[in-house]
Design a protein around this nucleic acid. Sequence first.
DNA 1: AAAATATTGAAATGTCGTTTCAAACGGAAT
DNA 2: ATTCCGTTTGAAACGACATTTCAATATTTT
Lengths: 284, 284
Amino acid sequence: MAAGGLKMIQNMLEQLPASERKIAELILENPQTVLNSTVQDIGVQAHTSGAAVIRLCKSLGLNGFQDLKVRIAGDLVKPVEQGYRDIEPGESFFSIVQKTTSNSIQSIRDSEEMINYEELERAVHTLSAAQNVHFFGIGASGIIAKDAQQKLLRIHKNATAFTDTHLVATLIANASQEDVVFGISHSGETSEVIKIMTLAKERGVKTISLTKYGQSSVASLADIKLFTSYSGEAPFRSAATSSRLAQLYIMDILFLSMATVQYEDTINSIDKTREAIRFIKEGK
Amino acid sequence: MAAGGLKMIQNMLEQLPASERKIAELILENPQTVLNSTVQDIGVQAHTSGAAVIRLCKSLGLNGFQDLKVRIAGDLVKPVEQGYRDIEPGESFFSIVQKTTSNSIQSIRDSEEMINYEELERAVHTLSAAQNVHFFGIGASGIIAKDAQQKLLRIHKNATAFTDTHLVATLIANASQEDVVFGISHSGETSEVIKIMTLAKERGVKTISLTKYGQSSVASLADIKLFTSYSGEAPFRSAATSSRLAQLYIMDILFLSMATVQYEDTINSIDKTREAIRFIKEGK
DNA sequence: AAAATATTGAAATGTCGTTTCAAACGGAAT
DNA sequence: ATTCCGTTTGAAACGACATTTCAATATTTT
């Protein structure tokens, strides 16, 4: 059908004359070039001519360059590899995308494996029973907090997500026993989050944490601990990419679980929310 | 890069004019044809013209027939994928997790397939060259905007992410030609975003959009269009789960690409940022 | 009904894959 | 070494086919 182009080239490599071999090697190193370049381009890139490219196609037993293109396209749809891979300088767009995809998927898979179902269930019930949920995170985790708040508001569960430590401290000082403080910190060592969690614990308010897997100050302060997978982050990724996806993923699960637990209620809320938004937008 | 052509066609099918739709249906029925036929051939087989085939490619956001060929070739090798699965009432925690995982991964995979590398490259260069980047989104997309802003600030690229339409309007009214407005809207029809994009266009400010795949007001207002995969969203998911993951994923790719383009600079910035944060935290 | 807009395919155009061919090369025979 | 013969090579000519243009037609709007 439509693949095996690379394998063909590999098998043929030794039997090829110099000019064609140059092309072949170029393609093996950088297969997606074939998809975006013209025959002449490739010829030049391999320090030979376009004619050699065509001859290579013929040598492989293909009908022409279009044929090769199609087969290589097929080869490139390989299942994404496992494991985290860091991005190097001077990397091609194609390869950045491949690696980001693979890393993103990996972090979700890994986080799935980390899930402790008993803990998850307790979290869902605690949140469902709560009067108010106070999400708190700083920086990238602050954004996750905002997102979580939005979700809960949609199913008419009161939620806050401020980033001002003092403000949140006041909030917790006045919180009821039915409130829940939800601390988010990838490292688990963000000092602001630690302070807030400590305060909540002192006040006897229930606490939930979301951190990377492992022992951390924030997690140890929490009644219920939720985790995302930890992956040794290299310089680039430390600007928080996959970790955030995983945090969102866990939040999704929490939200969907809560929603499922009270399906009917939720459906109605979402409908009401939609109506409210439509009302504001269209004034009718 | 090499797949998703069929999905693109499926998503676009309804928005296509008659002649293009005939082509689209022919391809969906018999994708293999695309690989062995010329544009004219296909035109005739679908009882229309070759020009319509090219128009279809353009309508799909592709650069031409070659692009379509390559993407369909990719689709044909791929094992049939499992689609999105909605969450039912009374579902077990385990099964909610399974479905969320599978949906999350699917939306990332699908979004990868939608990527137009030339458009991506243009986006990266435009952003890299920009003096200021103004992200704008409402609701869940507003959070993506905030996240993107944080990321750019980390590599000392000026960025804003306000949700107040009037404020942003003022900002754009005073923007320079070196600024970029980045509109985020899953549906592509959020009125506030449309207004801001229109304003930017009038003012001659460059625009980039991030929407679900397909024709939409926001996308058509943008100089550079980026897409996440579209999936018919069921009630629960419409509370925006997978779509947001996909948006973040695309943003990650943009960020990592920008970072790679200017590796040295970035490394320094990230280090400086770390130091700045440490300074604030520990006062030393 | 008229005007404006969108859609359509035939023909013109231009890009790019493919073929041709003369020159260069390499090895074997003289 | 020199000549001969088969192979390899890239520049340029060629031709196929993707793409654009445009005038005609259909569709929607006013």
